[in-house]
Amino acid sequence: MTLMLSVSNLSKVYAGKKGDFQALKDINLEIRRGEIFALLGPNGAGKTTLIGIICGLINASSGKITVDGHDNVADYRAARELIGLVPQELTTDAFETVFSAVSFSRGLFGKPRNPAYIEQVLRSLSLWDKRNSKIMTLSGGMKRRLLIAKALSHEPRMLFLDEPTAGVDVELRRDMWNLVRKLRDDGVTVLLTTHYIEEAEEMADRIGVISKGEIILVEDKATLMHKLGKKQLTVYLNEALASIPAALADDALELSADGYTLSYTYDAEQEAEGRRQQRGIGDLLNELNKAGIGYRDVNTKQSSLEEIFVSLVNR
C-alpha cells in the first residue's frame, strides 16, 4: 500500500458555551508512504485539531481515518503504534530526567526497553550530554528536541510535527530539517505544520494549505514552485490601445480593460537558463517599439508562494 494516512470526510465541531464552532469541514487528505507533507495554514486554521484527531487526542465529529490501513478508532492500538507526535506546545514534565522521560515514552508505546536505541536518539538530537539533567533545567530549544526524542523513542513509521520550528533558532532549525530528511531516508512518513512558507519550501515533497477548517490546496512542491517560476512583466502605455495588434498577439499577453497596460506572463526560470520557448522581455519591448507603441514604464514582478498562499487563504 502506498498510502500511509487517509483522512476522509472528516469534520469537527467543538461544542462551546457560546455555541458550536466548526473547526474542520469535510477534510479529505491522503499522505503517501515516505513523503514529507507540509500543512500550511494561518492561526486557527485547524492544523492542530486535525493532528489531534488523527492521534487520538480529540474526538472527531464525523469522518474516517486510517493509518497504514488501520482505523484510528476501531483499531487504535495498531494505528497509534505507528505514530509519533511532537505537540505544538512545549508540554513536558519537570522533575524527570531526560533519559527517563524518553524511556517512559518508549514503554508507553508498548516497546521493550532498549537503552542503546534511546542513546542513539538522544545523540542524534544532541541531548546525550543532558541525559541525566532534570527537564526543568533545559532551555526551550532543548525541550523541543526532547519532545522530538520522546516521539521517536518508539520507532514510529509516521511522525507528526506540529510547528516544530516555532521559537527555534536558525541553527537548530537547520538541524531539525536535516533530522527530518534523515527520517524520510529511513522510510518514515512526516507530516509537519508550519506558518513558514520557506520551511514548506525547504522540506516538503508535497504541500497542503488549510484555511478556516478547509483544505484548499494540495500540490506537489515542484508544481507549486513551477507556478512560482512565473514572472509578470507589466508595460504602462502612453496611449490606450483598443486591442492587441495582431503582430504581437500571444496567449501570454493581456491588455487591461482601460487599454493602458499590457501584461506579459513568462517563465523566469527558462529565461534565466536561456532555454526559453517563448519570447523574452527584450523581444517583446523591441516588438512594441517596431509597432510604434510608446510606453512610459515597465515593471516585473514574481509571485511568491507567500502571495499564492495569501491569495488562497483570503479567497
Binding site: 492521534c55 487520538g56 487526542l57 487504535y76 492500538r77 495498531a78 494505528a79 497509534r80 503504534e81 505514530i83 507526535l85 505537540p87 506546545e89 508540554t91 513536558t92 514534565d93 519537570a94 515514552s105 508507553l108 508505546f109 508498548g110 520522546k150
Partner: peptide, 14 residues
C-alpha cells in the same frame, strides 16, 4: 494541568 497527558492519550494504551 501541564498538558503531558497528550502522550498517554496518543499512546496505544486502553
Amino acid at each position: 494541568f501541564t498538558g503531558t497527558i497528550y502522550e498517554v492519550l496518543s499512546a496505544p494504551v486502553s
